[in-house]
């Protein structure tokens, strides 16, 4: 029965397009998911001074590189959005794939980090700090992968000039993933 778009989808009582409104709600619910994890981490971290020593084994350089990568990817996706708004599908397509490329760089750095840490014995079982480290960054990495897959799918439509508003929607999500990393970076890497 998914033949035609329902009329409901085209209505816009709040003044915010339906897709964007839904993404805001997705982000609102994601804030509580990541925030819940970070709250747990903070509570235990503030009570365990020894976690500072554990944290000194994370690589600030790798973390900073990844922050740079994600910030740049955020720039690319917002440029893609700007291009999509001007109906410049070529450019939007290009910038979406730059963003995906940046996501890939992020994942490569991340896996290099994981490999080094695990080979030095800092596995998820080492202590609760490392459990949190792998859970938080792993959950974040899953979001990065998810975003990349969705971008890949969207880029195909964008190339044909269809559903251009989706560039903005995936952009919002991608910026949110970026913001999560902006907080994970000081929490896990800088504070020693």
């Amino acid at each position: 029965m998914s033949l035609a778009k329902p009329i409901a989808t085209t209505r816009e009582v709040t003044g915010i397009p339906t897709g964007r409104l839904a993404v805001w709600w997705v982000i609102a619910s994601e804030i509580v998911i990541f925030g819940g994890l970070v709250t747990c981490y903070l509570l235990m971290r503030l009570n365990n001074v020894s976690w500072g020593d554990e944290a000194s084994h994370t690589s600030t350089a790798a973390g900073a590189t990844n922050t740079f990568v994600l910030l740049t990817s955020s720039l690319f996706i917002v440029l893609a959005h700007a291009a999509a708004e001007k109906k410049d599908t070529e450019k939007a397509f290009k910038f979406i794939w730059y963003t995906i490329g940046m996501g890939l760089v992020f994942l490569l750095v991340k896996s290099y980090e994981y490999t080094t840490e695990i080979s030095h014995g800092y596995t998820i079982f080492k202590s609760v700090f490392w459990s949190f480290y792998y859970t938080a960054t792993g959950l974040h990495a899953l979001h990065v992968i998810g975003g990349m897959v969705i971008m890949g799918i969207i880029s195909m439509d964008v190339k044909k000039g269809k559903e251009l508003q989706r560039v903005e929607l995936i952009g919002l999500y991608w910026h949110f993933v970026d913001i999560v990393w902006i907080f994970l970076f000081p929490l896990l890497y800088i504070a020693k």
Binding site: W25, A28, S29, E30, I31, V32, I33, F34, G35, G36, L37, T39, C40, I124, S131, T135, L139
Partner: peptide, 17 residues
């Protein structure tokens, strides 16, 4: 539901681990 379930989702992941 949306504002209260988030921490439990995180907790469920932790418990699953």
């Amino acid at each position: 539901f949306m504002f209260s379930v988030g921490p439990l989702v995180a907790g469920a992941v932790m418990l699953l681990f």
